[in-house]
Design a protein around this nucleic acid. Structure first.
Length: 361
DNA sequence: CTCAATGATTGCAA
DNA sequence: TTGCAATCATTGAG
């Protein structure tokens, strides 16, 4: 039996679908005349296929596929299916944006993991670096360290995301092709395919959420480690300490630098304004607690200040007696022996000044 | 290892 | 907000 004969014989067995119908376009009218019965019969035949031998079933299937009423039948079946699915599942709510995903997205964007390369990342790192403080060198080391680690996380995140997206689209395509293929042999509406695609996307987005979550965790761990480094202080370098001490001892009567002065000092010392504030806070309290202990230091810086003042004054007026300078505290005329190199402590304004007050000098 | 020095943090008051 | 006071935690000299 060749295929053609087999098909014909198969179709001949279907009630309402005579051989004449198959070949005759006018048969549509005849079929429509008793659609209910026809469809019922067809359905019965379809059900019966499962009980038949494979060869016979194949033949019937093929015959059905080729039947000109097939699209109409499938469309009716799809409609029925659609209604059944809707009644079972209820109306599929449109996916509202998941608040957790949104939160994760926002965080990743703020941390500079997602979004533009040079945007939030460096900003977040800069903010963290500023919070971490420390000397500029260490700050920049930690800063770059933080940035490098963040970039690493970013890279992993993007490569994983790409992988997921690729897998998702591949799988979606595969399923869509499969369903399209199957739609030739079983009733599958485009809506059903859409729904399936949506299901796949939901599954993949849940995987994506896990990725985002673990990325967020990694960033938080990195950040907390980075911020913990705040307590790992570094001593300021010698020059910075000198600048701060000079200011402190030359303003001993009112060691409260203004905001502008703090900024200036911060710039000079290459530290942050808050570090300057911390330093002055510590210095004031420690000086007050033990003035005696700081006496020597005070003298030292007073000398320094005076030397600087003297050198400036000497440069400004070389015509005047070169050895004379003015006491910064008392305003007295002082003699600087050996051109600013040899000083004796001033007994009148100790510890703020270190010149011998020589009224007759 | 000990301990003083020192930068940072915290809690409180003005 | 700022400064004070107490305290923590680390550094670095001995």
């Amino acid at each position: 039996m060749d295929d053609q004969t087999r098909m014909m014989s198969g179709l001949a067995g279907l009630g309402g679908l005579s051989q004449a119908d198959v070949g005759d376009p006018d048969g549509v009218r005849k079929s429509l005349g008793q659609p209910q019965q026809d469809i019922g019969d067809i359905l019965q035949q379809i059900m019966a296929i499962t009980d038949e031998s494979l060869d016979e079933a194949q033949a019937r299937k093929h015959a059905l596929n080729c039947h000109r009423m097939k699209p109409a039948l499938f469309s009716v079946l799809c409609e029925i299916k659609e209604k059944t699915v809707l009644s079972i599942r209820g109306v599929q709510e449109e996916d509202p944006p998941d608040p957790q995903i949104m939160r994760l997205d926002n965080m990743l964007l703020a941390e500079g993991v997602s979004g533009p390369e040079k945007g939030g990342g460096s900003a977040a790192a800069a903010a963290a670096a500023a919070a971490a403080g420390g000397s500029p060198n260490d700050g920049s080391i930690e800063h770059s360290d933080y940035r490098a680690k963040l970039a690493q996380i970013r890279q992993i995140y993007h490569s994983e995301l790409e992988k997921y997206e690729q897998a998702c689209s591949e799988f979606t395509n595969h399923v869509m092709n499969l369903l399209r293929e199957q739609s030739r042999t079983r009733p599958i509406s485009p809506k059903e395919i859409e729904r399936m695609v949506a299901i796949i996307h939901r599954k993949f987005s849940s995987i994506q959420m896990q990725l985002k979550q673990s990325t967020c965790e990694a960033v938080m761990i990195l950040r907390s480690r980075f911020l913990d480094a705040r307590r790992k202080r570094r001593n300021f370098n010698k020059q910075a300490t000198e600048v701060l001490n000079e200011y402190f001892y030359s303003h001993l009567s009112n060691p409260y630098p203004s905001e502008e002065a703090k900024e200036e000092l911060a710039k000079k010392c290459a530290i942050t304004v808050s570090q300057v504030s911390n330093w002055f806070g510590n210095k004031r309290i420690r000086y007050k607690k033990n003035i005696g202990k700081f006496q020597e230091e005070a003298n030292l810086y007073a000398v320094k200040t005076a030397v600087d003042a003297a050198s400036v004054s000497a440069q400004a007026s070389q015509a005047n007696s070169p050895g004379r300078v003015q006491c910064g505290v008392l305003g007295s005329r002082l003699v600087c022996q050996a051109a600013n190199t040899l000083f004796k402590l001033c007994v009148l304004c100790l510890p703020c000044c270190c010149f011998v007050y020589l009224p007759n000098g």
